[in-house]
Simulated assay, not measured.
Amino acid sequence: MKPSRRLQALSSAIFTEMNKRKRKLEQQGMKVIDLGIGSPDQPPAAHLIEALVNGVQNPDNYRYPTSEGSLEFRRTVTDWYAYRFGVQLNADDEVLSLMGSQDGLAHLALAWIDEGDVVLVPDPGYPIYAASVTLAGGEIYTMPLTAQNGYLPDLEAIPTEIRQRAKMMVLNYPNNPLAATADVDFFRQVVEFAKEYEIIVAHDMAYSELAFDLYKPVSFLEVEGAKEIGIEFNSLSKSFNLAGCRIAYVVGNAEIIRPLAVVKSNIDYGVFLAVQQVAIEAMRSDINGHFGNSIAKTYESRRDVLVDGLSEIGWNVDKPRATMFVWAKIPEGWSSEDFAFTLLERAGIVVIPGNAFGVEGEGYVRIALVEEENVLREVVQRIKESGIVG
Rank of each mutant, 00 (worst) to 15 (best):
D308P: 00
D308K: 12
G309F: 13
L310W: 10
L310Y: 02
S311M: 10
S311I: 02
S311W: 09
S311H: 14
S311R: 12
E312S: 00
E312D: 01
I313R: 00
I313N: 01
I313C: 03
I313F: 07
I313E: 00
G314S: 12
G314A: 09
G314L: 04
G314C: 11
W315M: 15
W315R: 09
N316A: 08
N316K: 07
N316T: 15
V317H: 14
V317D: 03
D318W: 02
D318R: 04
D318L: 11
K319P: 00
K319T: 15
K319I: 11
K319H: 04
P320F: 00
P320V: 02
P320E: 04
P320L: 00
P320D: 02
P320H: 01
R321P: 15
R321Y: 14
R321C: 09
R321I: 10
A322W: 05
A322R: 07
A322G: 08
A322D: 01
A322Y: 12
T323M: 13
T323K: 07
T323G: 04
M324Q: 06
M324H: 05
F325S: 03
F325L: 06
F325P: 00
F325I: 05
F325E: 04
V326Y: 02
V326D: 01
V326L: 08
V326K: 01
V326C: 04
V326R: 02
V326S: 00
W327Y: 12
W327L: 08
W327M: 06
W327A: 12
W327V: 09
A328R: 05
A328N: 12
A328G: 15
A328D: 07
A328K: 03
A328I: 06
A328E: 00
K329A: 09
K329M: 03
K329F: 08
K329C: 02
K329S: 08
K329E: 13
K329P: 00
I330C: 09
P331Y: 06
P331N: 09
P331E: 08
P331K: 06
E332L: 14
E332W: 01
E332C: 03
E332G: 10
G333Y: 13
W334Y: 15
W334L: 05
W334D: 13
S335W: 12
S335F: 11
S335G: 12
S336D: 03
S336H: 05
E337K: 04
E337W: 12
E337C: 06
E337D: 07
E337G: 03
E337N: 06
E337R: 05
D338H: 00
F339I: 09
F339G: 01
F339P: 04
A340C: 09
A340H: 04
A340Q: 07
F341G: 10
F341M: 12
F341K: 13
F341C: 12
F341V: 11
F341E: 15
T342A: 07
T342P: 00
T342E: 14
T342S: 06
L343S: 09
L343G: 05
L343W: 06
L343E: 10
L343F: 08
L343V: 11
L343M: 08
L343T: 11
L344N: 05
L344M: 07
L344K: 06
L344D: 03
L344F: 01
L344H: 04
E345L: 01
